[in-house]
Every structure is written in structure tokens, then in C-alpha cells.
Design a protein around this nucleic acid. Structure first.
Length: 313
DNA sequence: CCATTATAAAAGTGTG
DNA sequence: CACACTTTTATAATGG
């Protein structure tokens, strides 16, 4: 299992590969993840509120992340990052931790850990052969032939994705939870077509778009933030979120007053770095919770919601 | 349910 | 005619 931790912004991701590709079964992979979680949820840290096994059953990798909401639990006394360093694999880049300490100015002096969810991965590829859409529509499983759009949609159960096929052989696949599972899905789609008798190849696979989301443990003063940052645009009449574009990485963030942030970018890595980039910028405009009871209740709701998702280890 | 965001693809429409 | 947009679709998150 590899553990990635950023110190610029406290994003923690556990990537635990499993399945045929790494020769591990889920049962063998999950225990270390459980231990990692256990370490986080040890008495001192009472605020592990979320962990997602999003791509757990999709072949490829488990992206399991934990989230600690700073300032919401009075009994939190210790930084979670201390616990994180105990992981078997060292973080990919470990800067001097003391240098980032002030970035996350938690109300308790605790550095919060931000959970990054990858919600959607879009990819495209080409099977390099003409596809008889009508035939696929008639014989395929879980397919819909849209004649007016010259397109067939095909749904896979594992990984859970929807693909659009064109007669040219070009295919777009949406709905994956990781870049790896997107590729697995793409190959399985190609395989399905191959079994139907098409002489498929697997070419030009690429990740075209990724949506991620996370939740910062504080409310954000959107007006103040926009005043300072020129890359931000805010039209509350149109949309409740601030749009922030990072040209360099082609990432676009939607920042909401509640502390929720969504990011669209060309890759998971770009999504992650966008979150890291934006964290200190919005942290500067965090609201004291007493100034924003609405946001506070939103936070509480989020915790309730995510707590329900906790797996029963 | 609607808007926003990004992105591919293909078909349709518009302009020089 | 050749590009350049525009529209449609799927997906998922967020807030109103």
C-alpha cells in the first residue's frame, strides 16, 4: 500500500492496489487500510468522519481516504499527520513539516486532513474499426441505440461506467472513479465488442477529464476571496459557487461558502494539486463558525452524511 | 429540477 | 468549400 500525503495542504490519499494486476485479493489488501484508519481514529483523533472505498469493487485500485475536520471536535488535540507518517511507505515528497505548519490555521492549532474524492473520470479511446451500431443495439447487453444521434450507449456494471460508441470506432467513457478503473472499463468495453465479432484494437486511450471534490473544515468568505484573487469570478445570481481557474494546470474550481470545493481538471494529479494550491488561498478567508451558523449546520450535516458511509470494519 | 464545469464525439449551422 | 462555432450526451459534485 502506498500512502500519499501532502504537507502544503493536508490531503491524504491511500492507494491500495488489489486484484489480478498486483496479485492481491481484496481481503489481503483491506487490513492494512483498516490499520491505517485505526491509527487515525485512535482516541486522540475523534474526527475521522469519512472514508470512501469508491473504486473498491471496480478492479484497479482502492482509493481510500480519510478526513479529519478540524475545529469541530473539541477533544482533538493532536495533528493527524503525525499518525500518518507511521505508514509503511514514506510520503512521496516530504518537505520539512515545520514549514507548513501555519498554513492550516485550525482553531485548535490542529492541521486538518482533507479528503479528496474523485467523483468522475472521463476517458476516450479508439477501437480502430467500424462499428455496426444497429447490430450492437440489437445484440448487445445494457445498450441503447440512439439512431438520431448515431450513437450507442453501453453501460458496464463493473466498473460502473457509461460509454458512448460511434460507428467510427471512437468511444467515450464516463463515470469511472479513478484513472485506473477508467482504463479497466475501456478495455472491458473493447473486449465486449471483440466478443461480438468486431476486429477491435485498443488505441489512443486517454483521460480527458476528471472531477474531484473535497470539503474544507471552515466556511469561506467568498466576497473577500474574490476581491483579492483576480482568477476568481463570482456571480451568486447565476451560481452559488466562486469559479477559480488555474490556467497552468487547466483546472477549474468551484468554491462554495460552506467550504465545499469541486474541481475539474485533465487528470487526478491536476485535481489534487489544484486543491493543494487553493487551500492556503481560501484558508485566509475562512469565517469563524459563529459568524456563519448556516455553514456550521452544513458542516454538521456533512459529517452526519459521511458518518453513515463508514464501513463496518 | 436547474445551473455550472470540463471533455470527448458527431452532426448541424454559420461565416468568409 | 473550409473552418468555426453550437448543440447534444453522459457524468458527478455543489448550491438554490
Amino acid at each position: 500500500m502506498t500512502c500519499y500525503q501532502s504537507f502544503n495542504c493536508p490531503v491524504v490519499m491511500f492507494n491500495a492496489p488489489y486484484g489480478p494486476s498486483c496479485g492481491k485479493k481484496m481481503e489481503e489488501t483491506v487490513p492494512p487500510v483498516q490499520e491505517a484508519l485505526q491509527a487515525l481514529s485512535d482516541s486522540t483523533i475523534s474526527s475521522v468522519v469519512s472514508n470512501s472505498l469508491s473504486s473498491y469493487d471496480q478492479g484497479g485500485s482502492i482509493v481510500l481516504s480519510t478526513c479529519i475536520y478540524n475545529g469541530l471536535h473539541p477533544d482533538v488535540k493532536q495533528s493527524s499527520s503525525t499518525e500518518q507518517k507511521e505508514q509503511e511507505d514514506p510520503p512521496q515528497h516530504k518537505d520539512d513539516p515545520s514549514s507548513e505548519a501555519p498554513i492550516a490555521q485550525g482553531t485548535n492549532g490542529v492541521e486538518p486532513v482533507i479528503n479528496l474524492h474523485i467523483n468522475n473520470v472521463v476517458c476516450s479511446f479508439n477501437v480502430r474499426c467500424h462499428l455496426d451500431l444497429k447490430l450492437i443495439g440489437l445484440n448487445g447487453q445494457n445498450v441503447e441505440y440512439r439512431r438520431e444521434q448515431n450513437r450507442v450507449t453501453l453501460k458496464l456494471r463493473k466498473p460502473h461506467v457509461t460509454a458512448s460508441l460511434w460507428s467510427s470506432g471512437k468511444i467515450v467513457c464516463t463515470g469511472a472513479q479513478s484513472e485506473d478503473s477508467a482504463k479497466v472499463a475501456a478495455r472491458r468495453i473493447a473486449r465486449v465488442l471483440q466478443k461480438m465479432g468486431f476486429r477491435v484494437k485498443f488505441r489512443n486511450f486517454r483521460i480527458v477529464n476528471v472531477l474531484g471534490s473535497c470539503f474544507f473544515p471552515f466556511a469561506i468568505k467568498l466576497n473577500g476571496f474574490c476581491m483579492k484573487h483576480k482568477d476568481a469570478s463570482y456571480e451568486p445570481e447565476l451560481h452559488p459557487g466562486v469559479t477559480y481557474r488555474i490556467k497552468k494546470s487547466r483546472a477549474t474550481l468551484k468554491i462554495f461558502f460552506t467550504g465545499s470545493v469541486t474541481v475539474t481538471a485533465p487528470s487526478v494529479d491536476a485535481v489534487r494539486s489544484a486543491i493543494e494550491y487553493i487551500y492556503p488561498l481560501v484558508a485566509e478567508f475562512q469565517m469563524k463558525r459563529e459568524e456563519c451558523p448556516d455553514a456550521d449546520s452544513a458542516v454538521q450535516e456533512e459529517i452526519m452524511k459521511q458518518s453513515e458511509d463508514l464501513p463496518e470494519f
